[in-house]
């Protein structure tokens, strides 16, 4: 016992402090690995931004250059104007997308809040059956409903309208589930107190639950907005004119069109990504915690 203490003390005297040193080295290795991985992940973005400033000649040059020889801002102007000017082209795509995403978001928040509250705090006939029925729809892949939903939209004469791009996404099982999870954490004493003050379910939901659910609503709003912003296949199917197209469909046409220059393409990709990226960076805590929570609880 004594000898082991002595030897370890001697060891420390001779080698210095192995523990902190080893920990420092381990931390350094971890940082190195993470930095390399992070750089690899960031590389496509870096490449995108750098290429978006190159001339067409330089963008196709072999061997490729990393930094642009001259920074050509004109690419952004060109890409912005290329698919056409108002009421077509990128300005129109952006207005459409903001409009569609805004309305979809508000509608989905409203229905999800009310339905989430109903499932979290009300006891009624057939509750479990309906809840399970709603959850079961999560198993249905979107390809399976693509054709029937398209025919439904055609039947309603909603083809090539904003309505077709908004209405199907307002009812959200994911949203209901998220809001139910959030609202069920509110203490029941609140409801009892509210009843004594003469509030019914509607008043309680409006005046007490809604303000307390703001963090949950924000998370859901972010997810819905992002889904709406990044939607491709559905608007691709239900729109036929440039005036109705959202940003992703416009960008997809721009990409697949013959003769689109790489540098302009990268400029268009950059200004499509930037708004969402800024939104994410501002709200990333809400976002990542939302994924972690809904992910694990879902």
């Amino acid at each position: 016992m004594v000898s082991s203490i002595q030897t370890s003390a001697m060891h420390q005297v001779m080698v210095g402090h192995p523990r902190p040193l080893r920990r420092l080295r381990a931390a350094l290795v971890v940082h190195c690995i993470l930095l390399i991985c992070g750089l690899l992940i960031a590389f496509p973005f870096i490449w995108m931004i750098l290429t978006s400033f190159k001339t067409q000649f330089e963008a196709l040059a072999y061997p490729p250059t990393l930094l642009p020889e001259q920074w050509r801002w004109q690419n952004y102007v060109d890409a912005w104007q290329l698919p056409g000017s108002w009421p077509k082209g990128f300005p129109r795509y952006f207005v459409n997308t903001v409009f569609i995403a805004g309305i979809t978001c508000s509608g989905a928040l409203l229905t999800s809040l009310v339905a989430g509250y109903t499932f979290a705090k009300m006891e009624f006939f057939g509750k479990n059956v309906i809840f399970i029925g709603l959850l079961a729809t999560l198993m249905v892949p979107f390809e399976a409903t693509l054709v029937p939903d398209f025919i439904i939209i055609k039947t309603f004469h909603w083809y090539n309208t904003y309505t077709a791009q908004i209405i199907p996404w307002i009812g959200s099982v994911f949203g209901i589930f998220l809001m139910r999870q959030f609202i069920s954490t509110l203490p029941n004493e609140l409801w009892e107190a509210a009843q004594i003050d003469g509030l019914g379910h509607a008043g309680y939901l409006r005046w007490i639950v809604t303000p307390l659910s703001l963090p949950g609503l924000l998370t859901l709003g972010l997810f819905t907005f992002l889904d709406s912003w990044n939607a491709l296949i559905w608007p691709l199917i239900v729109t036929s004119s440039d005036e109705m197209r959202p940003i992703q469909v416009g960008l997809a046409y721009f990409i697949t069109e013959e003769g689109t220059q790489v540098n302009q393409l990268m400029a268009a990709a950059t200004f499509t990504i930037i708004p969402v990226l800024v939104l994410f960076l501002i709200t990333q805590r809400q976002f990542i915690e939302g994924i972690a929570q809904s992910g694990l609880k879902g």
Binding site: P44, F45, L226, N230, M266, A269, T270, Q284, I288
Partner: peptide, 15 residues
């Protein structure tokens, strides 16, 4: 690490 997941997959695929 998370950034790619929020960007538009159309734009990312173009890159």
């Amino acid at each position: 690490f998370f950034v790619p997941y929020v960007t538009s997959s159309v734009a990312a695929a173009a890159v």
